[in-house]
Amino acid sequence: MNQTAWLLLLEGAWTTLWICTLAISIGVVLGLLIALLRMARIPFLDQLLVTYVSLARATPLVTLVLFLFLSAPSFGLALDRNTAAVLALTMNTAAFNAEVWRAAFISFSREQREAALACGMTEGLFFRRIMLPQMITSSLPGLVNEMSFLIKSSPAIAVIGIVDLTRVTNRISAVTYQPLPPILAAGLLYMLIIGVLIKLQALAEKKANRLAT
Rank of each mutant, 00 (worst) to 15 (best):
N209T: 10
T169C: 09
M131T: 01
V29R: 04
A78N: 12
L143G: 03
F75R: 02
L22S: 14
V86Q: 02
R102K: 12
K199Q: 14
V168K: 02
G76Y: 08
L36I: 15
L70Q: 07
W18Q: 07
M121P: 03
L70R: 01
W6F: 15
T213I: 08
W101Y: 05
L125E: 02
I151H: 05
A98I: 05
T16W: 09
T176H: 03
P179F: 11
P179A: 15
L200K: 00
I198S: 09
N92A: 11
S107D: 10
R81A: 15
T16N: 03
V65A: 04
I130C: 10
E205K: 10
A23F: 04
K206I: 06
P182G: 12
G31L: 11
R167C: 07
P43E: 04
E123N: 06
S173D: 09
C119L: 13
S107C: 04
A212C: 01
G12R: 00
Y52R: 00
I162Y: 05
L33M: 15
A56F: 13
E146Q: 10
R57T: 04
R128A: 11
P60L: 07
L79P: 14
I198F: 11
T16D: 01
L180F: 12
I162P: 08
A85C: 12
K207G: 00
L64T: 12
I26T: 06
A103N: 10
A174L: 07
